[in-house]
Simulated scan of single mutants.
Amino acid sequence: MEIRNLGASGLKISAIAYGNWLTHGSQVEEESATACVRQALGEGITTFDTADVYANTRAESVLGRALRGERREGLEIFTKVYWPTGPGAHNDHGLSRKHIMESINGSLTRLGTDYVDLYQAHRYDYETPLEETMEAFADVVHSGKALYIGVSEWRAEQIREAHALARELHVPLVSNQPQYNMLWRVIEAEVVPTCRDLGIGQIVWSPIAQGALTGKYRPGEQPPPGSRATDDKGGASMIQDWLRDDILERVQRLRPLADEAGLTLAQLAVAWVLQNDNVSAAIIGASRPEQVTENARAAGVRLDEDVLRAIDEITGPVVERDPAKTRSPRTRSFSRE
């Protein structure tokens, strides 16, 4: 497993991180979830990403039990705060001081740990002053409940402003967690240059576009039985936008490139993400241990420049690049992610 620094910080993490969004506590039974975590550890993955909102806190509990007994110093455990948890009352979401302080305590209890390595703002909160949010995060760090802080799906100007406050408060803002893959490149124009300048690394989610880049979905055909596109617990709605025939046709045209490189399409997709020098890690999810193994093998793979150019030529017409696509809800009148 390749090990990288998280941004310009001294924290070292595995280039492949294991995440449990849409799986633990909902789509996947706990026995299977635990098997996937054990497989991740066997592949050398030491970085685990979750959030309090995943399965309405159940995902954190499942991950905590799956990691029980492991040497804590050898793991990097990340979680997030912002989206509604519990019954979703008026203070059960957002980045207010109240919600952050209550949420970190709940996350630590569920994860069975005294601290998390990285505590992330899951979205930008337009209804709370940024100063209040950053001061609360600073107190979380200074109390020893988190070692570093990060954000997720924040725009470049929001990241820059938060970083300036973090410097004043003497806390390390070291990461951003955006969606990023061959088809979704909205961070490249503004977020990545800003983060390079500030020493912030990307921990990217959906490197295989919810499975669309695996090649299992073919244009003009029904999704395979048992695939995410047939899941009625949330998976189908998340992948639906990627299942257009024009996208799926382009994905199939990537197959010869993967074959020539000795990779599966999924491995090609993950390796492509890791080529970006501002990416510290790619988050993979899994419902079966063999999926963990397949994706983990992309760590350390270097794609030749001609392969990268060919990928750009094939995917170009269907790539989304608009920086405005990175956005957070303007009000708290939203449904659970």
Rank of each mutant, 00 (worst) to 15 (best):
N5K: 14
A15L: 09
G19E: 05
V28D: 05
A33F: 00
A35G: 13
C36T: 09
A40T: 10
Y54N: 00
R58K: 04
E60Q: 00
L63M: 08
R71C: 04
E73F: 08
G74R: 02
T79G: 06
W83I: 01
P84S: 02
P87A: 14
G88Y: 07
G88E: 08
A89P: 04
L95H: 05
S96P: 07
R97S: 02
I100F: 04
S103W: 07
N105K: 15
S107I: 02
T109N: 12
T113M: 03
Q120M: 05
H122E: 04
Y124N: 03
E127K: 11
T128I: 00
E132R: 10
M134I: 09
A136E: 03
A138M: 02
V141K: 10
S143A: 10
L147G: 01
L147A: 11
Y148A: 07
Y148P: 06
Y148W: 03
I149G: 03
R155A: 15
A156S: 14
E157K: 07
E157R: 02
E161D: 12
L173A: 04
L173N: 01
S175A: 15
Q177H: 02
Q179A: 15
N181G: 06
N181P: 10
R185I: 11
R185C: 14
V186D: 15
V186T: 15
V186Q: 15
A189N: 14
A189K: 15
C195R: 02
L198A: 09
I200N: 15
Q202I: 08
Q202T: 10
I208C: 08
A209R: 06
A212Q: 08
T214Y: 06
Y217L: 04
E221H: 10
E221R: 15
G226E: 08
S227H: 09
D232V: 05
G235R: 01
A236M: 02
A236E: 06
I239L: 06
Q240D: 13
L243K: 01
D246P: 01
L248N: 04
V251I: 03
V251G: 06
R253I: 03
L254R: 04
R255P: 10
L257R: 04
L257Y: 10
L268T: 00
V270T: 01
A271G: 08
Q275N: 12
N278A: 08
G285Y: 01
R288Y: 11
R288M: 09
R297P: 14
V301W: 07
E305Q: 10
R309K: 10
G316K: 00
V318M: 13
R321N: 13
D322H: 04
K325T: 13
K325Y: 14
R330I: 15
E337A: 09
